[in-house]
Design a protein around this nucleic acid. Structure first.
Length: 938
RNA sequence: GCCUCGGUGGCGGAACUGGUAGACGCGCUGGAUUCAAAAUCCAGUUCUUUCGGGAGUGUGGGUUCGAUUCCCACCCGAGGUACCA
């Protein structure tokens, strides 16, 4: 009987579960260490081989930390609200909670199978009322606070009201909506309740505002950009337009600067921080006001180059600005309307991606230049985006390439304001070199000087000021979906009223259908029991609504990122009924020490959660301002997707070898399981796959239909998921764990392939054979020799170093080398094999546990101290190694890898050729690469 | 388009601060063992060659005594791009 992984794994998994081996204590004499995984969304396809990559890595680290004497918190849960369960519900009528529960059961089975050391007693699910109660509560807190720029933190809205009563808002330094009017205390006190509440919404951190969404009238629903392909809906291919809707938003913009500053304090990958910095997009410049000719309003623009203000020859507005309607000249109305219509059909991404075509329309109106009073034509153009800056740009064609192209295309004059620079062929965008010219008081100044001067002049004139702009937009928080957290708000006189903590959780109501209502209201509009009885403080039936005591409840739900923005605190105190996390508990665990997850969350989850953290910190609910000290990105495991190519509007599919003969084919993803390894599609299965393919017609040569292949993110929606189950079945969890680590560096994306898995499996077999001959346990008590000790200690040193640097692939290699060497030496000494088993334990915990027990140890291996490398076994006598001297100043030595530098220096200086070369001088600088080459500079 | 990351044998990858490129594993070739197979073990394996050598880390340049590593330009792939999570 050899290495019987099936029984071993079953046995130890049962043991861990029964003894609650990995249950973390909320107080301990040991130092604490919190290792967090990004929790999975339980999709219908089950766990795929990409999920465990990060989980294996964090599990290895958790087990290592336990061996190192830490009180490790390593929890797991489910991000269980989400679109796929809802879509499945729409198709089948099955309640998303049922689907979700089934998927979770499957996930749990798969996770258990891999021997993860999670503390399952702390499991959380975002879709559980006991969890989302607190998500709703945090929403209410956000609703109840505003951002004060003076104290630079969130403050209660009651404080704001007091200020308004005393002095209005003229001297207030707080973050608010653009265009919030000024009022005095007298004004405020004269306002009606409704007016006051309306104004307060301009300050609340969770607030209502008009925002644009992708509206599909045929489906009667709002679509995510993800659900739109080539401008039409993915489902059914219907047209999608932009529509304004009143939606909840989060004032994340208030935290832009702190989110930026906070990055300096955390140990996250530099690339990810850079992404967040760019996403926040801080830029310094100026606001400039342009008077509209014959109109009382002014247009405000933001520019990073106010120094080029004399080069302005036109102005461009984003087509969707309301202002456009106001200012369009009657003669241009038609053209403008047509253009706006056209842009509404394009997604923002298309607009940004498209730099070649240059489109726009003249509005027929003019603004006046603040300094020269020249008339400047106002255009609209879709290269200007409504939600960046003010949605308006002062166009300086000589200094900006897009403005330049636009001017050339529409034959608008270009004014050169750079001294001795030709703008014949392109704009001049360099800030450093040229002097400003042709610019009144700015002429002859450098960029830097001109910036200062022009801002001063603008402020004097009252036509602008220096300002900082952030690209970061406030986050839309409403979703027209069923399967999300209900927003704990009801509407009285159309104004939002918050529920109170004691009313929470506000549970999701039952609905007949998960689609929007026929009137286009969100799915919660289908609920019969969805009104708020403010007197009895409970949810009642809609038909009772009287707008006196019983009011309509909010129909939108929260987005996926709501629950995931704080879930890591719930793990600390998962069952606390009185608080989202207990004060003492959070004082103990404080923060996540290591967070492991994919970089695809860089500007989503990882930014939103930092925002909520800062808010909760501001109001003294959390002890730290950043929740994750260190973050490691695991690279994605990529899957191989398969594509068929359809002639648009038909059911004709073209085989890969023929696609060049057709124009404009639509690539459609098909389930990779319907395709064999030679890229041939099983046509019959394809026809049965989805009703739309039933009558598919195929065109192909050579008797087989070939699909196209593409490597991309592994995901159910891309139909390219590979399950870990078969591998567990065939090779065992320990093999899978080691193989996934062996695939390559943890942070690198890599396509899944199982080609090398037998090598890892062989290694575990070999490891087993170090201890066994047939059924006989052959470990002896021999004293190990020097060579064996050296192998062991080199391995300890390398493994310890590599685990701490998250280089798990090289750990596996090193273990393989070690086992090969010990096998060759026929070493079966307990004094070698016992510590070696500890080294293996984080990687292959089942096998290590079994062997540890067989070695006669009473306690299990899980909390045994990790071995420490003893340097004395590594340093060797250098006298016997040759030192070769080749020419100028280069020495080649054959030395032990782990020899220290001073020993090498000593060896070199004893060599006669070096003595001759140095001629009595002392080397100034040594460049030593062990086992390789030494440069001596003198 | 923009932001971020990556590109090394037939394949996954290694190479610590710029210092013998290809560790380790897969695959392949040959051998041992076996009635045979599996398993196991041993040897070989970047390409090319007239067997002297020559070329070689996506492409083209640059810095350096020396570049997979640093700099510039480009090509290709992946992730994100604000309602997938």
């Amino acid at each position: 009987m050899g290495y019987d992984f099936k029984n071993i794994e079953k046995k130890w998994q049962a043991h861990w579960s029964k003894n609650q081996t990995f249950k973390a204590d909320n107080n301990s004499k040991k130092p604490k260490y919190y290792i967090l995984d990004m929790f999975p969304y339980p999709s219908g396809a089950g766990l795929h081989v990409g999920h465990p990559l990060g989980y294996i890595a964090s599990d290895i680290y958790s087990r290592y930390k336990r061996h190192k004497g830490f009180n490790v918190l390593h929890p797991q849960g489910y991000d269980s609200f989400g679109l796929p369960a809802e879509q499945y519900a729409i198709q089948t009528g099955q309640h998303p909670s049922k689907t979700t529960q089934e998927n979770i059961n499957r996930y749990r089975e798969q996770l258990d199978q891999m021997g993860f050391s999670f503390d399952w007693s702390r499991e959380v699910r975002t879709s559980e009322p006991n969890f989302y109660k607190w998500t709703q509560w945090i929403f209410l807190l956000l609703f109840d606070h505003y951002y004060c720029n003076t104290s630079d933190k969130a403050q209660p809205i009651t404080r704001l009201i007091k200020r308004f009563e005393k002095e209005g808002n003229q001297f207030l330094n707080a973050v608010s909506d653009a265009g919030t009017p000024y009022f005095t205390s007298k004004d405020w006190n004269g306002f009606s309740q409704i007016e006051q509440q309306d104004l307060l919404l301009n300050y609340r951190l969770a607030y209502l505002s008009e925002t644009e969404v992708n509206w599909c009238s045929d489906l009667g629903t709002v679509l995510a950009n993800d659900e739109i392909i080539n401008g039409v809906s993915e489902r059914g291919g219907h047209q999608v337009t932009k529509k304004k809707m009143k939606q909840w938003s989060m004032r994340i913009g208030a935290y832009a600067e702190r989110l930026l500053q906070g990055l300096e304090k955390i140990d996250w990958p530099e690339s990810l921080k850079e992404m967040q910095r760019n996403w926040i997009g801080k830029s310094t410049g100026a606001k400039v006001l342009f008077q509209i000719e014959g109109h009382e309003n002014k247009i405000e623009v933001f520019t990073t180059r106010p120094d080029t203000v004399f080069g302005v020859t036109f102005m461009t507005l984003a087509p969707e600005l309301d202002l456009v309607q106001d200012i369009t000249h009657p003669e241009q109305k038609e053209a403008v309307a047509a253009y706006i219509d056209e842009t509404q059909k394009r997604t923002q991404r298309e607009r940004m991606a498209d730099v070649k075509s240059c489109t726009g329309v003249f509005t027929g109106s003019y603004v006046l230049h603040p300094f020269t009073q020249e008339r400047i034509p106002i255009w609209i153009g879709d290269y200007v985006l409504a939600d960046y800056g003010t949605g308006a740009v002062m166009a300086v064609p000589c200094g900006d390439q897009r403005d330049y192209d636009f001017a050339k295309h529409f034959d608008i004059p270009i004014k050169n304001i750079f001294k001795d620079i030709s703008i014949e062929n392109e704009a001049f965008t360099d800030k450093g070199t040229a002097l400003i010219d042709n610019s009144d008081f700015l002429s002859g100044l450098s960029h830097k000087e001109a910036m200062k001067r022009v801002i001063h002049e603008l402020e004097v004139l009252g036509c602008g000021e220096g300002t900082i702009n952030y690209r970061l937009r406030d986050a839309i928080f409403s979703r027209q979906r069923y399967w999300g957290e209900p927003i704990p708000i009801y509407y009285k006189d159309k104004l939002p009223q918050p529920l109170k903590l004691k009313h929470l959780p506000l549970k999701l109501p039952e609905v007949e259908k998960y689609l929007p209502t026929p009137e286009g209201a969100p799915p919660l509009g289908n609920a019969v029991t969805w009104a708020w009885d403010s007197q009895n403080e409970k949810v009642v039936e809609n038909k009772l609504i009287d707008h006196q005591i019983i009011f309509p409840l909010e129909l939108n739900t929260m987005p996926g990122w709501a629950g995931s923005s704080w879930y890591f605190y719930r793990y600390m105190d998962a069952h606390n009924p009185d608080a989202f996390v207990g004060k003492e508990v959070v004082e103990y665990w404080k923060e996540v020490d290591l967070y492991l997850g994919g970089s695809e969350h860089a500007t989503g989850h990882l930014l939103y959660s930092r925002f909520w953290q800062k808010f909760l910190f501001d109001i003294n609910l959390l002890p730290v301002e950043e929740y994750a000290k260190k973050l490691i990105n695991q690279g994605m495991i990529l899957g191989t997707s398969a594509f068929v190519y359809r002639k648009p509007g038909t059911q004709t599919y073209i085989s890969l070898e023929l696609i060049n003969q057709y124009e404009k084919l639509e690539p459609i993803r098909v389930d990779a399981n319907m395709v064999n390894s030679a890229d041939e599609l099983d046509i019959d299965i394809f026809r049965k796959w989805q009703p739309q393919f039933e009558n598919a017609d195929f065109k192909f040569n050579n008797r087989v239909f070939k699909v196209g292949r593409e490597v991309e993110k592994m995901s159910k929606s891309k139909h390219n998921v590979v399950n870990p189950d078969e591998i567990c079945e065939q090779y065992g969890a320990d093999t899978l764990r080691m193989y996934e680590m062996f695939l390559g560096p943890i942070d690198q994306a890599k396509p899944w392939n199982t080609a090398g898995i037998s090598g890892v499996h062989n290694f575990l077999n070999k490891y087993w054979r170090l201890f066994h001959e047939g059924d006989k346990f052959i470990v002896n008590n021999d004293q190990p020799n020097k060579k064996e000790l050296k192998i062991l200690h080199e391995t300890i040193k390398k493994i310890t170093y590599d685990i701490e640097h998250f280089s798990f692939n090289t750990c596996v290699s090193k273990l393989m080398i070690c086992v090969n060497e010990l096998t060759a030496l026929n070493c079966h000494s307990r004094m070698i094999l016992s510590p070696l088993t500890l080294l293996l334990s984080p990687f292959a915990p089942h096998l290590a546990s079994e062997i540890w027990k067989n070695l006669g140890n009473e306690s299990t291996i899980d909390y045994i101290d990790f071995p420490i490398a003893n340097e004395t076994y590594l340093i060797e006598d250098t006298k016997n190694y040759p030192v070769s001297f080749n020419g100028k100043m280069r020495f080649t030595l054959e030395l032990s890898l782990s020899l220290n530098n001073s020993a090498i220096q000593k060896a070199v200086l004893q060599d006669s050729r070096a003595v001759e070369y140095l001629n009595g001088k002392k080397p100034k600088k040594w460049i030593i690469v062990p086992n390789k080459i030494i440069n001596i500079v003198y």
